[in-house]
Amino acid sequence: MTLKGGTSQACAACKYQRRRCLPECQLAPYFPADQPKMFQNAHRLFGVSNILKILKQLDPSQKSEAMRSIIYQSDIRDKYPVAGCFGYIHQLHYQIQRGEEELHAIRSQIALCKMQQQQQTMGQNDDDNQIMQTMQTTGIIGEDEDSTSLLQLGMGPPNNTHNNNISSANNNINNNNTMMFENGGGYVNEQFCWNNNNNLMDFQLAGDVVQQQFAVVVPSSSQEMGAGINNSSSLVHHFREMHPFLDAIDDRQSFIDSKVAYESSSSEESSDPMKAMDHQVVESTDLKNAAACFSLTSVN
């Protein structure tokens, strides 16, 4: 329409206002003729006179940045007429808050990992050889592939949760680590709290192969939680009664027990974990008898 100097097109501002775009047009550098929407947004939110007022109070070096921010702010207001930039700022604040929380959580995890590694290193120096010997004696190492398959089936995490609780409760890291290894998951889930009766019952009633591994692992954690677990379930009492059994046990015996539990888990009749529990509890006072009992269970 109006030509600027007779050669170039009028800027979007002048075009919109249907006026002649003079060479000294202040808005021409920021509103090219081919982007009318950009000017319309800015004009709708600020208005030409307000934009010029803002530009007037600034140094020439700042004008370009100011116009960029004005155009950006206007575009956002066009997209979000209610919240505008304020909504975006809110969103960013929320994002940062969430990110910081996540960062904090990850750092806590790392601190815990460090602590566990230190504990492992300390325990490893003392009893590593003994554990390996025991594993070879009881044939646990040969069954690792099955354990891994259990882990891959997603059954690992609960096992190790209990192991972690045992670890914290008894400070008997060597036993527990051995059992964790045997169960196929070399990790500890420190956030999963074993303080829920329902969780315990879920494990007990599932009738899964893994349950029989819990038969050895769970007791100390259930006693650790004390009154929280002593509800109507007889199995819970079984777990409680088994606690001293695990406390007194040495490395080798723990392997015997857990190995038997593992074997029984692979047998066809192992689908009844309650039966296995009963056997274990009856003989809980005598470690050797208990081991024999597990063997019988697995055979039967």
Binding site: Q116, G185, N189
Partner: peptide
């Protein structure tokens, strides 16, 4: 590292739950 140490050593490693 924890898993490696656990496997090669005592069998205990670290596990993150999130």
């Amino acid at each position: 590292d924890g898993s490696l140490a656990g496997v090669l050593g005592t069998g205990s490693g670290s596990r993150v739950s999130d």
